[in-house]
Design a protein around this nucleic acid. Structure first.
Length: 201
DNA sequence: ATGTCGATTTGCT
DNA sequence: GCAAATCGACATA
């Protein structure tokens, strides 16, 4: 049940962090008091300045991207397609805008509350098997942008589950076809044959 | 099962 | 104006 600490987030290799986040837990206590969350089964790395798929490509600073320039250990939450909030974990030191997008979670804590937020009748991948779905299931909105991942509202835990290398599938990131050669980088990670990822293997 | 399309804010041109 | 780190509704098969 160890909460991930700042040393975890502030490491320099964002791709390694994205891989390491598989099997960790994301948890929230928001708008009510019940804890909700589950096991991370899919992530993507965004390597800031040198990554054409990143909002912070070329150190682009806007009101939106400012959060990514903060020191690792805070949430970067932004609005995608005008309607979905997406959750990222900011990594590296202050001034280096690296982040990991959390793309899918296996709902394990407060599952009933997560289903209610999603208005779901069945517990399946449609509850949190996509970056827009999981934020809704966890109650995460834009007000979570910049909040500390070492705090009491949104945090990550290591619950001692080991994900061996052969259980990890690396592949190209989703929805970044505009990124030229960077679109093909194998920076999306998921747990092999998990029924909870956004797409089957 | 697969395809198209609309919603709606942010940011670039 | 247009495209976007998406999702769900609806159509057709």
């Amino acid at each position: 049940m160890a909460k991930l600490d700042l040393a975890f987030y502030r490491r320099p290799d964002v791709v390694a962090i994205a891989r390491d986040l598989l099997g960790k837990y994301v948890l929230t206590r928001l708008g009510g008091g019940e804890v909700t969350g589950g096991r991370i089964v899919e992530t993507e790395a965004y390597a800031g300045p040198e990554d054409r798929a990143s909002h912070a490509h070329g150190n682009r600073r806007t009101a939106r991207t400012e959060t990514m320039f903060r020191a690792g250990g805070v949430a970067y939450v932004y609005l995608c397609y005008g309607m979905h909030c997406l959750l990222n974990v900011v990594t590296n030191r202050e001034g280096i805008p690296h982040a990991v997008l959390i793309r899918a979670v296996e709902p394990l804590v407060g599952a009933g509350a997560m289903m209610a937020r999603r208005r779901a009748r069945r517990m399946d991948r449609r509850v949190a098997g996509g970056p827009g779905m999981l934020t809704e299931a966890l109650g995460i909105g834009l007000e979570c942008n910049g909040c500390r991942l070492t705090g009491a509202k949104v945090w990550l835990e290591d619950r001692g589950e080991i994900v061996p290398p052969r259980a990890v599938v690396a592949g190209p990131r989703i929805g970044v076809h505009y990124a030229g050669p960077d679109a093909a980088l194998p920076w999306r990670f998921r747990i092999r044959r998990s029924p909870w990822t956004s797409l089957p293997d």
